[in-house]
Amino acid sequence: MLTTLEVLTTVVVGVMVGVEFSVAFVMNRILDALPEDSGQLGHAHGGRMLGRVMPFWYIGSLVLAGAWATAGRHDAGTGLVVTAAGLLILSVVMSVLLLVPINNRNRTWTPENRPADWKRQLDRWGRFHYVRLAVILAAFAFLATALTR
């Protein structure tokens, strides 16, 4: 049972990292290259769509890591799992305090009602997203390493 939990946790966090990597290095670049208002509309749609899914994914990943750390508390890699869980907590805190407020504004914007500084706000979200991506990538690396212990 523990092995299943270990693999499931690693896969769930790994796929989350892949999605966030794709947002940072693929989707945002595609959206930013679209003509006129299309990119901003795409960002707003992505914010609405992923804004519904990601809270469950982030919290679910944290719960899985916590369950792994608890169930495998006597295993050699437990410290790595606890570190990963700490990083996942940091990613949730970052999301709630830094990224979600910008996303909540962005997802309601249209070309008619967006603020004058909308590009600056999206750039700020992007910088925070890069940092959060580094945090969850590190968590994934700790989990993958713990899986081999």
Rank of each mutant, 00 (worst) to 15 (best):
L143K: 09
R132G: 04
A146L: 01
I59H: 03
A24D: 01
Q121F: 05
K119Y: 06
D117K: 09
T83P: 04
W125R: 02
V53Y: 08
D75P: 05
V13T: 07
I30G: 01
F25G: 06
V131S: 00
W57E: 09
R124K: 11
R120W: 05
R120K: 12
A138I: 04
Q121A: 13
I30R: 01
F140C: 05
R120E: 14
V82T: 14
T83Q: 08
G79V: 14
N113L: 06
G66M: 07
G60A: 04
T145Q: 09
D123K: 07
T78F: 05
R149W: 01
E20V: 11
A138F: 10
T108K: 12
G47I: 03
L87A: 13
V131G: 00
T145V: 12
T78W: 01
L5Q: 00
A69Y: 00
P115T: 05
T148A: 03
V23D: 02
L147N: 13
L98W: 06
V23Q: 03
T110E: 04
G86R: 07
A134G: 15
L98E: 12
P111A: 14
W68Q: 02
V53S: 00
L87T: 11
D37P: 12
V63P: 01
A24S: 14
V93M: 03
I89Q: 08
A134T: 08
M1H: 10
V100K: 06
A69E: 00
L90Y: 05
F25H: 06
V26S: 13
T4N: 06
T78D: 06
F128V: 08
A71L: 11
M49E: 08
V13W: 00
E36S: 14
D32F: 08
L50C: 02
A71K: 10
V92E: 00
E112V: 15
M54E: 01
L98R: 14
T78I: 09
V96C: 04
V131L: 01
I89M: 12
A71V: 10
N28I: 04
N103D: 02
L80P: 00
F56S: 07
A44I: 08
W57C: 11
Y130W: 12
P101M: 10
V12P: 03
V96Q: 09
T78R: 04
G86D: 06
T70A: 14
V131Q: 00
G77T: 08
R105S: 14
L50W: 11
T9I: 02
I30Q: 03
R48W: 06
N103V: 03
L41Q: 14
A24N: 04
V63L: 06
V100C: 02
V96G: 08
F142G: 00
R120T: 14
A116C: 10
M27A: 13
F56R: 08
F56V: 11
L147I: 11
L88V: 05
S91G: 11
L2A: 10
V7M: 13
R124M: 09
T108L: 03
L50P: 04
D32M: 13
M49Y: 11
L143T: 09
I102R: 13
V17E: 00
L133H: 11
L147K: 12
A65I: 00
L147E: 09
T10M: 15
W68T: 02
F140S: 12
V100H: 05
V96H: 02
N113D: 06
L34G: 07
P101Y: 09
A71Y: 07
G60D: 05
G51I: 02
A76L: 15
G46N: 14
M27N: 08
H43N: 14
L41F: 09
G77R: 04
A76S: 15
R114W: 08
P115A: 07
